[in-house]
Simulated assay, not measured.
Amino acid sequence: MSDFVLALFSAALINILALEPERPDRHRLHALGACSASLMVVALPLGYLLQHKLLAPFGLQAMRLFLLLPLLAALAWCLPPLVQRLRPDWPIPGLHIVLLGNAAALGLLLELGRDGSSAWQALRWGLIGGAGFWLALLLLAGVLERSRHTDIPAALRGLPITLIGAGIMAMAFSGLSGMFGP
């Protein structure tokens, strides 16, 4: 589970830097968070069913990446317009490109294939992972915003202070990972 926390923060950091490296807009962050959360909620149960009902009976577990990547790509292209219908004030254009590179959903799908989990656990991981990813995006945006308003030495401005803040947040959240496991 600690690997998932580190993958979650690294994916959130990459997505927020790819979204808008200067100053991310709150509405755009919420749009990316909603699209990513819905991607995880939909992709994890579907990916679980594909892995355990289609690949496992034929012994083709090694081919799961070739099946999961097109599933994630199709969902990344279909989900932003659905979120746009629910929230027309959120700026959606260009988010499908960022969703294509979302490593958190792929990491969770591959993790589900390794252990003996159920479809309900896949749905639960999708809900928790999506909410956690959305929270990580908002927290990293807060780190970016605070780093622009403080007096920071010139060598640490920009990406270095963002990486330091993300590393500290990842260590704090990975410390919590043992609380919820068996």
Rank of each mutant, 00 (worst) to 15 (best):
A103I: 12
L67H: 09
L72D: 07
R85S: 13
P93M: 01
A62I: 11
W77F: 15
G33Y: 03
P80M: 05
R23I: 08
L32F: 02
A62V: 12
P93Y: 01
L65S: 12
I97C: 03
L86C: 15
D89M: 11
H52E: 15
M40C: 10
R64P: 00
I16D: 05
V98T: 03
L32V: 01
V83R: 08
P24N: 08
V98P: 01
L39E: 05
I92V: 13
L86G: 15
L79G: 04
L69F: 10
D89G: 10
L29F: 03
N102L: 00
P57G: 03
L82K: 06
L54W: 09
S36L: 05
M63I: 11
A74T: 13
P93V: 03
L44K: 04
I16F: 01
L50H: 07
H27S: 15
P21L: 01
P45I: 05
L50G: 11
G101D: 02
G33P: 05
L32P: 00
P21T: 04
L17A: 14
H52W: 13
L17D: 08
P88F: 11
M40E: 09
Q84V: 07
K53D: 13
A74S: 14
A34V: 03
M63D: 11
L100D: 00
L100T: 02
V98F: 00
P24V: 11
A73T: 14
H27W: 13
P45N: 06
F58K: 10
P24M: 07
R26C: 07
A104E: 09
L39Q: 10
D25F: 07
R87K: 14
L65Y: 10
C78F: 14
A18V: 12
A104T: 10
A62K: 12
L65V: 13
D89I: 08
R85Q: 14
L19V: 06
L44G: 03
V42D: 02
G33W: 03
A62R: 13
G94P: 03
A74G: 15
A43V: 04
L55Q: 03
A103S: 15
L75S: 06
I97P: 00
L95G: 00
L95W: 02
P57H: 06
L71S: 08
E22L: 12
L68Q: 12
A37Y: 05
A18L: 14
L54G: 02
R28S: 07
L69R: 08
F58I: 14
A34M: 11
A73D: 09
I14L: 15
L46P: 00
A34S: 10
L60I: 10
V83A: 11
